[in-house]
Design a protein around this nucleic acid. Sequence first.
DNA 1: TGTACATCAGTGAACGCGCGTTCACTGATGTAC
DNA 2: TGTACATCAGTGAACGCGCGTTCACTGATGTAC
Lengths: 206, 206
Amino acid sequence: MTDTASPRPYHHGDLKTALLAEAENILEKEGIQALTLRAAARAAGVSHAAPKNHFDDLTGLLSELAATGFARFGKALAAAMAEAGDDPRQRIRAMGLGYVGFAKAHPGLFALMFRSEMLDGQRPALRDGISAARQSLADAVRARSPEKPLSPLQAAAQAAALWSLVHGFALLLLDGRLAGILRSLPDGETADTLLEAVLSAIHVGD
Amino acid sequence: MTDTASPRPYHHGDLKTALLAEAENILEKEGIQALTLRAAARAAGVSHAAPKNHFDDLTGLLSELAATGFARFGKALAAAMAEAGDDPRQRIRAMGLGYVGFAKAHPGLFALMFRSEMLDGQRPALRDGISAARQSLADAVRARSPEKPLSPLQAAAQAAALWSLVHGFALLLLDGRLAGILRSLPDGETADTLLEAVLSAIHVGD
DNA sequence: TGTACATCAGTGAACGCGCGTTCACTGATGTAC
DNA sequence: TGTACATCAGTGAACGCGCGTTCACTGATGTAC
């Protein structure tokens, strides 16, 4: 919470948070190649050397930004599934819509989160964010077959299949590659309808 | 075919092809951020202004490179499916293994092909390459239910589901995100085994 | 077969740009006593 | 409650770097006659 009364104090107060917010804004509006330390500093109204006090380098800033992305992503998935109740089909539907919905709402951030060559996977914040999101995903799959025990390979395949399906759908959609398929849909059908049909194309517990 | 006898002729002979080859090499070995017009010229042993005679700008070079990638990708998929024969299940398995296999063999190129914000989708070569690859994909799905007619939504969903599944699997694998799941597999099982299990998790014609 | 000339592909020096980084500094904050 | 001092966050000028682009040039190729 910055003090809006004071005009322009020498110390920002919460520059780190402000830089992350501006960085996300740049990422979504101008793309990742426009996101530099200098650009973030400029947007935050601060000298270009100031970010060095909070992030070692650009990788540090990107990693922290991705970490907040994963944290929010995990929460969004968990919330969507909580609302869906206990039915496995409903949970998977909720997870898929939540997954793709997040990607559509934050396309730049989502892409950054999965561009691991630009991130420092060792950062604690990023590790935590990723494992939180992964946990939400795992919860969706675990709910699929609560009684019947699966072989390790089957269990792994179910998790990987669901994740691959929604991840691939999200990326193809963001990249505009599904345009042709969407155009072939009956009038009035949207990407969400297609996604729901896609989600029901995979086996659940049988 | 360059004349290897002549020492260093003033004219390269086939600089465009050479630049594309060097660009792909840089892309795979050093990553996309290292791929610049100057770096490609340097690798081809040519002055840094020379590429301007063949590509307008970096987007042009990237687009042409992606176009050759799609062309080879489409051929690889078609070949894999041709070998698999007529059984729908086998064709899907072949397509999936071919899809992910190409991504593993050319990770940098594959990523570039689906980073459309860096490409000029208007370029004829790129359009052609994409539609060839899409055709191969469509062939895999069309073979799934040759007799039973599907509703437009069902048909679109089957195509989108298969594509999303293999695309998501490929990207998650390249990004190292499947490491946890792969580690949970029984000893001796590889990513390909997991992929086969994943492919059989989606409905085919039923 | 030879000559003149237009066209093309590649050269190398120069330019401006934005970047990350360094550095001495300054203003603000917190702590010891 | 006050004072001294260490620490911290942000400043602004300067640096070197690699980039894309421009430009006059030069060597090679192709074509007209």
